[in-house]
Design a protein around this nucleic acid. Structure first.
Lengths: 303, 303
DNA sequence: TTTTGCGATACCGTTCGGGTATCATCTGCG
DNA sequence: CGCAGATGATACCCGAACGGTATCGCAAAA
């Protein structure tokens, strides 16, 4: 109810003439005079000195003009900022992912999103599947990248990548140093470093299912909380581990990565968001994701 | 037309409840809902997430809330500031005065004004009568303190002080060192250091009229632009000068001040402002001045 | 499933803002 | 000194917008 008056006041102050200001504002002069008078009454001070033929700003008017310009400017920018955030062009998007996703196409996907929405603050954090599930349910995050997937209700889920499994072996192991191909069953007696099986489905399920398809169940199992720990255990000779191929692309002292023959059902990375999370940032992210997977996530190799 | 909406929005955002916010705003809930909806449409973004039972701010809403609070605060302070200036409680008052006024009651008067209106910026400058006249006409200053007065049209004029004249003599002059009273006519042969006679009336007029009343006209006259220069000329022995008594209260090496017998019509300090200058600061200043002169400008002696 | 609480929608009356006509005042010119 | 033109203020009218009451729709809780 008073903002229009600020604009009116600015126009009159700049034109120093009610008639011209009214023309500029596309209105008649009398209502403009009335609005200015009302503004002056509200403020309780004269803003214009009308004693001469050419109207002039009073000192109060001079100061109020500065303030009014600033206010109009700020209001406008507040509108624009809110609009931008509302369209997902600014603000914050919270993404969490399993640690092993950092080697695959995820960084490329995130770069792509960033290039489309450079003003969005990305909050990135690594979590295991259990933490992802909790954070997603409690809306602490918008996007979860799980391996192989989260299986809770009311999630929007998109497959990011499917990749084969590989062996991670101590590099002084005879199996690692020999040139012949490796098959899984011959490792039945070795210690398999696995991950927690909860919540289902877990990466451990992928590995155990792979073993099952190859006709055996690992006899000795050790457990690690995440793939980094698992590889560390391998490097110090605790046993061997099975990892997604993308993980094998980083070299790690004491660890050798080898493919294996036989059945290899692979493992998947899945991107989730709550179905009821209609935040434009999330929708935009899935748009970028859709284009990304469609044009082939050749980014698998990248980085 | 949009500011009311900001206040509505802030209320709803703070209450997180349309009904309570409406109660707080002393209005019904439906128009409030409509105003918020209109605001969201204007902005082009949702400000509230109404999907759950408890409404929540969206990210755009969070940011807009900050901005809205800031805007309301700024608007309010702009109103208050303009009002204060409009009442003469802040802003700037431009005062100019003849140099010789600095020793009389003027500083006390200004202190009194300052204590009543501590937030008013005082712009103080020294000018001779000619400059005062020009500045007042061109509205470069609000208040002029002239000696003895300005005689131009449309001025509000108030006598600040009337004081006797005194002699300023070189301190090695026999007249300065003798104990007997001094009369003006015996100085007829001395050089009188005077001031410019334009614009009329000038302090030089006061001095010459005083001489005339004592029955003579100074035979030798020297001219100085201001009283400081005049006293300097006296101190280096150019001649003698006649000054307002208040000036005699500062001691100056090489200069002795002496009263004289015979006629002493004295000299005045007059405070002027343009009649058409209705600025509250000027009116307030004259209010202070009125009280000041009424309760006796005992400040003559002060300082 | 029913009930309750809350926000949205429909509809109506009043108010306020804007338009046209006119007045009052000041300025400049003859 | 008086008259004409310009400019802001005032008077009056109309339409749009805002607020109020009644009611709906939906979702969470019982």
């Amino acid at each position: 109810m008073e903002l229009k008056r600020l604009k009116y006041f600015i126009a009159v102050a700049e034109e120093r003439h009610f008639g011209r200001a009214a023309a500029r504002l596309d209105m008649a002069q009398p209502p403009l005079s009335r609005q200015i008078a009302a503004l002056e009454k509200d403020i309780g001070a004269q803003l214009f000195d009308r004693s001469r033929s050419q109207i002039r700003l009073t000192q109060a008017g001079e100061v109020f003009l500065e303030r009014a310009r600033d206010l109009v400017e700020r209001l406008d920018s507040a509108y624009r900022e809110a609009r931008l955030i509302g369209q997902g062009g600014a603000g914050r998007l919270r993404i969490a992912f399993v640690g092993s996703a950092t080697h695959g196409p995820l960084p490329t996907l995130i770069k792509s999103y960033r290039s489309h929405y450079p003003d969005v603050d990305l909050s990135l954090s690594a979590m295991n599947n259990a933490e992802l599930e909790r954070a997603l349910v409690q809306q602490d995050i918008d996007i979860a990248v799980a391996r192989p997937a989260l299986k809770i209700e009311d999630l929007r889920s998109v497959l990011l990548i499917e990749e084969p499994l590989m062996l991670a072996l101590p590099d002084n192991s005879p199996i690692a140093t020999r040139s012949a191909a490796v098959s899984l069953p011959e490792l039945e007696g070795e210690t398999f470093v696995l991950y927690p099986r909860r919540p289902r489905p877990s990466f451990a399920d992928d590995v155990l299912q792979c073993c099952a398809l190859n006709g055996f169940t690992p006899r000795n199992q050790a457990f690690a909380q995440d793939y980094q720990t698992a590889i560390s255990l391998v490097s110090v000779g605790v046993g061997l581990s099975v990892v997604p191929r993308s993980v094998s692309q980083v070299s790690r002292p004491g660890v050798a990565f080898r493919p294996f023959t036989g059945e290899n059902p692979g493992t998947r990375l899945t991107i989730h968001a709550r179905l009821d999370n209609r935040r434009p940032h999330v929708l935009n992210f899935f748009d970028v994701l859709r284009r990304f997977t469609r044009q082939g996530p050749a980014g698998t190799a990248a980085r």
